[in-house]
């Protein structure tokens, strides 16, 4: 029997039977052993690198490293957030668009205008009040105002007393 080389067996395993006939080899003991050896060597289970291998390596290399699970979590979080934003936006758009008509829009703008006008007038009143308060800080002005207002009060009291009578004597003034 012709002596078989390892190259022949390699070719046989790769499906290239040019240099060898499979049937003739199958009775060969060495062929069987080698075939088994080659098949086993090819299917020899490997051992993956430890889980923290990449993290430690990137740390040593000064490369930023995001683990797969964190990437997945970030992606999932972002997709959930974007979905929520999209759904909320769509719902609010639908809600608003269902409410909007020409009258509601004009009403809305007039309301806004009124509110703004109220706010402006409040600010103006505030300004006047400030001026009044500041005016009272001048004692002479305060005395003058008190004097005038007391005379006015007396006049009002007098008038009210006269009003109780049936005839009002305007001549007195």
């Amino acid at each position: 029997m012709k002596k078989r080389s390892y190259k022949d067996i390699e070719d046989y395993l790769e499906g290239e039977k040019r240099s060898i006939e499979g049937d003739a080899m199958e009775g060969d003991k060495k062929f069987k052993e080698t075939l088994e050896l080659f098949t086993m060597l090819k299917s020899l289970p490997g051992k993956p690198a430890p889980r923290d291998f990449e993290r430690n390596l990137y740390k040593r290399l000064g490369i930023s490293y995001v683990p797969v699970y964190r990437k997945v979590l970030i992606l999932a979080g972002l997709s959930i957030f974007s979905t929520l934003v999209y759904l909320t936006g769509r719902a609010s758009l639908r809600f608003v668009s269902s409410k909007i008509t020409l009258t509601t829009v004009s009403q809305f703008f007039s309301q806004v205008y009124t509110k703004l006008a109220q706010a402006v007038s409040l600010v103006k009143v505030g300004g006047h009040l400030k001026d009044i308060v500041l005016a009272f800080t001048n004692p002479w002005l305060f005395v003058a105002v008190a004097f005038v207002s007391s005379i006015l009060m007396l006049m009002l009291i007098g008038l009210s007393q006269e009003a109780k009578k049936k005839t009002v004597l305007l001549r007195r003034f």
């Binding site: 490997g46 051992k47 990449e54 390596l57 990137y58 290399l61 000064g62 490369i63 930023s64």
Partner: peptide, 21 residues
């Protein structure tokens, strides 16, 4: 782009580790 070394590490780390082991 130093960070792009990671796909190469991912691809070959197991075979290199097994070989050395």
């Amino acid at each position: 782009k130093r960070n792009d070394f990671s796909p190469l590490v991912k691809r070959y780390k197991d075979s290199i580790f097994y070989f050395i082991l």
